[in-house]
């Protein structure tokens, strides 16, 4: 099993690489989406800031669109999920528009960034969340959350100042607002489920 991990050039890809290696996945770090098309799946990691990443991906929008529309597996983590939306309050630039919605700032009633372990409230069945117990703890580090236009894409929610979608999915396209590679048991299970989806 080989997966392409997109490197936006801004940070830590080592943890996600190690987490996948531990599950027996070979990871190819690619600077452009097109270099990763020969792999079994594509991962958009959760590092960096919206604007520069959006700018970097703008040129490859069509390629990503075709990739997702052909039903090939993609996992977006944190910013890697937000970048799939139409845009973000974090900054300028348009998202990829693959999922309708925007990344919004967490309410000022709670401390931001939202750092730490919070719970999943399971919303909808999907093979990505297969076997994830209600109330599982996962690790979050973010200041913006995905606000979806299609509620049906929400697989799990989390409560922090408001209820926001923490896992989204549509077919082979899945994303998490938290970091599965840092979420101990629940994270390992999600990554394993993703592997199963890819193998199928």
């Amino acid at each position: 099993m080989k997966m392409a991990l997109l490197d936006y050039g801004v940070g830590n890809l080592y943890s996600i690489t190690c987490a996948l290696n531990r599950l027996g996945v070979e990871v190819k770090t690619v600077a452009e989406v097109k270099e990763g098309l020969d792999q079994d799946a594509l991962i958009l990691p959760g590092v960096g800031n919206f604007t520069p990443v959006a700018a970097r991906l703008a040129e490859e929008k069509e390629i990503l669109y075709d990739y997702v529309n052909s039903g090939r597996p993609l996992l977006g983590i944190c910013l890697g999920l937000q970048i799939l939306l139409d845009g973000s309050e974090e900054g300028e630039g348009r998202g990829l528009g693959i999922i309708s919605g925007r990344a919004l700032k967490l309410p000022s009633s709670v401390k931001t960034p939202h750092i730490g372990w919070n719970r999943l409230s399971m919303v909808k069945q999907h093979e990505f969340v297969d076997g994830i117990p209600e109330g599982s703890w996962v690790y979050f580090v973010h200041s913006y959350y995905p606000s979806l236009e299609e509620r049906g894409l929400c697989l799990a929610e989390t409560d922090y100042g408001l209820r926001f979608p923490s896992i989204v999915g549509r077919g082979a396209l899945v994303g998490t607002q938290f970091h599965p590679e840092k979420s101990a048991e629940a994270g390992r299970l999600l990554l394993r489920n993703f592997l199963k989806m890819v193998k199928r």
């Binding site: 080592y14 943890s15 190690c18 987490a19 290696n21 531990r22 690790y139 580090v141 970091h179 590679e181 840092k182 979420s183 101990a184 994270g187 390992r188």
Partner: peptide, 11 residues
């Protein structure tokens, strides 16, 4: 840091 990161799945 590398040794720790390759063994740890908590932040």
């Amino acid at each position: 840091v590398k040794d720790v990161a390759s063994n740890l799945d908590i932040p």
